[in-house]
Each structure stands twice: as structure tokens, then as C-alpha cells.
């Protein structure tokens, strides 16, 4: 194993990016770069620092978390081989890639299953009782590549016979589920779509903010945003990461971390878990927007 620890991975990545071949950007110094998206609340910095340290110790790799404002930003980094792994949403995961460069590693277990819902929330004092009451209002989506924050509410509108592009007077992206909650709480938006996991963990950490909102619709369950690895990640590293994550629930320190993240654990899942999202994307005929350049 090459242990040129003093060479910064980004330097190597930048140097090798110009070379042909998709493997060239992966770090060969053992650094494990994991992309984070808005499927988690990155603002809980201490929890994620502890999570990073935990992974570093358990995997024996220098783990670093990489954050971009949009899902697409992380997907681009994965595509360029600048990330070894990423915690992404099911919607980007189900997008067809040719050739495929991602492998499903694990999905978090949330309240007994690797499943979550998409919620439609409104300000607490709103008169809206269902999503149709939000017609001609202002609506906050989280990210155009989000399942729960974009695909699900639009699909719901489409199922109800509305044109998602015209139903709202105005809509915008917050690029974060947590920000969507804030946008609704502060009544910048008349309604918004959020991840049920994010909404619930926020109600634990930011009860005042969440108390200013109200859920008017919860979707059916979908596969929880998974952790994927680059297909070219060395098998031993992949295995070590897999074992570390799936073993967290059985380890006191890992269990404590999971509790802080409001998760039961991580378990291996198979791609069919995300078939419902795939179906949704196909039926809603929403073109995939995940190629925009990273805004930040």
C-alpha cells in the first residue's frame, strides 16, 4: 500500500485529472474522500467531525468529508474520480450512467428500515390543508436532484393532474432540506418539500424553527439516501469502509455517534430498494437536471 501521506490528495487529483482514464483521479495515498450532500445536515459540524474521526480510526484511512452546495456538484466530483465515496440521494443514484462508476455500499437504517418519506410542510399558521391549497403560492424545493425535495412533490402534483411547472406562482431552490425548513418557517415560501429524516432530526436540534412549520403531506416510503463508492475504489478499502459502517451499531462509540445522527445503523442494501424512485422519475418524465456546474 502506497502511503505517501504528505502528498495532498487534491494536488494529485488536479495533476492526474488531465490524464486519460477514469481511474486516474482516485487517491493512491490511502486518503478516503467522502462527499456529503444535503441529505444530511452538514451544519451539525461536531457530529460530523466525530464521525470523520471515527471512520479514520476504524478504516485506517485519512477520511475527509467534501461538501458541495448542490447534489450535482458531488456527482461531478464522483464522475471525475475525485471522491472515493459519497452520501447521495436516491434520485441521483437511479440516474443512468454510462458506464456505471458507482456501487451501492450501504444505506442508513432509520427507525427500523432504510426508508424515509418526502414531507410537504407549510408555515405553522398557514391555512393550507393539502398540497393543492398551495396553488399560486411560493414553493421551496431543496435541490433539483433531490428525490424527497423535488421529484416526489412534483410527481405528486402530476398525479393530481397539475403541471408542476405552472402550479406555483413562484418556486425556488434552497439546495438544502434544512434551509427549506427555514424558508417555510420564515414564510419566504408558502410551502416546501423536505426529507422526513432531516425534518425530524431538526425538530430535535432546532425545535423552535421546526415548530414554526407544519406537515400537510407525507409521501409513501422510499429508499433512504445511500452511501455509494466509486467502482474503482480498492476492494480492501471498500471492505473496510463497509465493515466499519455496518459495524457501527454494534460498537458503543459508533452507536453513540449514530444516536447523535438519529440513525439506527448502516446496512447493506441492494439496488432494487431504489426502484420506486426510478419508477417515479420515469413516470413523472422529469428530465434529469444533474449536470449543472457546482454553484459554489
Amino acid at each position: 500500500m502506497n502511503r505517501r501521506r504528505f502528498l495532498r490528495s487534491t494536488t494529485i487529483a488536479a495533476g492526474l485529472a488531465a490524464l486519460p482514464g477514469r481511474l486516474s483521479a482516485l487517491a493512491d495515498d490511502g486518503t478516503l474522500r467522502i462527499g456529503l450532500t444535503a441529505v444530511v445536515v452538514r451544519e451539525y459540524v461536531r457530529s460530523f467531525n466525530d464521525f470523520r474521526d471515527y471512520l479514520t480510526i476504524r478504516t485506517g484511512r485519512a477520511v475527509s468529508f467534501v461538501q458541495r452546495r448542490t447534489y450535482a456538484g458531488i456527482m461531478d466530483l464522483l464522475a471525475r474520480g475525485e471522491l472515493e465515496a459519497a452520501w447521495i440521494c436516491g434520485y441521483p443514484y437511479v440516474q443512468p450512467r454510462e458506464p456505471e462508476f458507482l456501487d451501492l455500499l450501504v444505506a442508513p437504517v432509520y427507525r427500523g428500515a432504510p426508508l424515509y418519506r418526502s414531507l410537504v410542510i407549510v408555515p405553522a399558521d398557514s391555512v393550507a390543508r393539502n398540497i393543492e391549497d398551495l396553488r399560486d403560492g411560493v414553493f421551496a424545493y431543496s435541490d433539483p436532484d433531490s428525490n424527497s425535495g423535488y421529484l416526489v412533490p412534483r410527481s405528486t402534483l402530476a398525479e393530481l393532474g397539475h403541471d408542476p411547472d405552472r402550479f406555483f406562482r413562484f418556486s425556488f431552490f434552497t439546495y438544502s432540506h434544512a434551509e427549506t425548513v427555514a424558508a417555510v418557517a420564515e414564510q419566504v415560501a408558502d410551502g416546501g418539500a423536505v426529507d422526513s429524516y432531516i425534518y425530524n432530526i431538526q425538530s430535535r436540534y432546532e425545535p423552535d424553527l421546526v415548530a414554526r412549520t407544519r406537515v400537510i403531506r407525507a409521501s409513501r416510503q422510499f429508499g433512504f439516501p445511500p452511501i455509494v463508492v466509486h467502482r474503482d475504489l480498492a476492494p480492501d478499502v471498500r471492505l473496510r469502509l463497509l465493515n466499519t459502517l455496518t459495524g457501527m451499531a454494534g460498537d458503543p462509540e459508533g452507536a453513540a455517534l449514530l444516536a447523535r445522527l438519529d440513525l439506527d445503523g448502516f446496512s447493506q442494501v441492494s439496488p432494487p430498494l431504489y426502484d420506486s424512485i426510478r419508477d417515479l422519475a420515469r413516470r413523472a418524465a422529469v428530465p434529469f437536471a444533474g449536470s449543472a456546474a457546482d454553484a459554489l
Partner: peptide
């Protein structure tokens, strides 16, 4: 320029 009203609000 990005029509990012949420950032404007922030």
C-alpha cells in the same frame, strides 16, 4: 444572476 432567491433572502 442565478435567480437564487433563497440566497438573496439569506
Amino acid at each position: 444572476l442565478n435567480n437564487d432567491v433563497w440566497s438573496l433572502y439569506r
